[in-house]
Simulated scan of single mutants.
Amino acid sequence: MLSPTPNHAEGSIATAGGCLASVYLAAWALLHAVGESAARAAIEYAAPVGEKHEVVERVMSAVTATKAARR
Score class of each variant (00 low, 15 high):
Ser3Gln: 09
Thr5Leu: 05
Pro48Met: 05
Gly11Lys: 07
Leu20Ile: 09
Ser22Leu: 07
Gly11Phe: 02
Ala69Gln: 10
Val59Trp: 01
Val63Asp: 03
Ser22Cys: 10
Val63His: 01
Val34Asn: 09
Glu57Gly: 01
Ser37Tyr: 05
Val59Ile: 15
Ala21Val: 11
Gly35Glu: 09
Leu2Thr: 13
Val23His: 05
Asn7Met: 14
Lys52Trp: 04
Arg40Thr: 02
Met60Phe: 07
Ala39Ile: 08
Thr15Gly: 14
Gly17Thr: 15
Ala68Ile: 05
Ala33Leu: 12
Lys67Gln: 15
Ser3Trp: 03
His32Asp: 11
Ala21Leu: 12
Gly18Ile: 08
Cys19Pro: 14
Arg58Asn: 04
Glu54Asp: 14
Thr66Ile: 08
Ile43Phe: 03
Ala65Val: 08
Gly35Leu: 09
Glu54Gln: 09
Ala69Phe: 11
Arg70Val: 05
Ala9Glu: 06
Thr64Pro: 00
His8Phe: 13
Gly50Leu: 02
Tyr45Thr: 11
Ala33Asn: 10
Tyr24Arg: 07
Glu36Leu: 08
Asn7Arg: 04
Ala29Asp: 08
Ala46Glu: 04
Met1Ala: 13
Lys52Asn: 01
Thr5Trp: 05
Val63Ala: 01
Gly18Ser: 06
Gly35Ala: 09
Leu31Asn: 04
Glu44Trp: 05
Val49Cys: 10
Met1Val: 13
Gly18Arg: 05
Asn7Asp: 07
Ser12His: 11
Ala14Pro: 02
Glu51Arg: 15
Glu44Arg: 15
Asn7Tyr: 05
Cys19Ala: 15
Ala38Val: 07
Arg70Ile: 03
Ile43Ala: 01
Ala62Tyr: 01
Ala62Leu: 04
Arg71His: 11
Ala69Thr: 06
Ala46Met: 06
His32Pro: 01
Pro4His: 09
Ala46Ser: 12
His32Met: 07
Thr15Arg: 13
Gly18Asp: 06
Glu36Phe: 05
Leu30Tyr: 03
Ala65Asn: 03
Tyr45Lys: 12
Ala41Phe: 02
Val49Ile: 14
Ser12Trp: 11
Val23Ser: 04
Ser12Leu: 09
Ala69His: 08
Arg40Lys: 08
Ser12Pro: 00
Ser12Asn: 14
Cys19Thr: 15
Arg58His: 10
Val63Asn: 03
Ala16Glu: 01
Pro4Leu: 09
Val23Asn: 04
Ala33Ser: 14
Glu54Met: 06
Pro4Gly: 07
Ala68Arg: 12
Ser22Ala: 13
Ala42Pro: 03
Tyr24Glu: 05
Glu57Thr: 08
Ile43Asn: 02
Glu51Thr: 10
Lys67Ile: 14
Gly17Ser: 14
Ser22Trp: 10
Glu57Leu: 06
Leu20Met: 15
Lys52Ile: 11
Met60Leu: 15
Val49Gly: 10
Ala39Thr: 09
Val63Glu: 01
Thr15Tyr: 10
Ala41Asp: 05
Pro6Cys: 09
Asn7Leu: 14
Ala26Val: 11
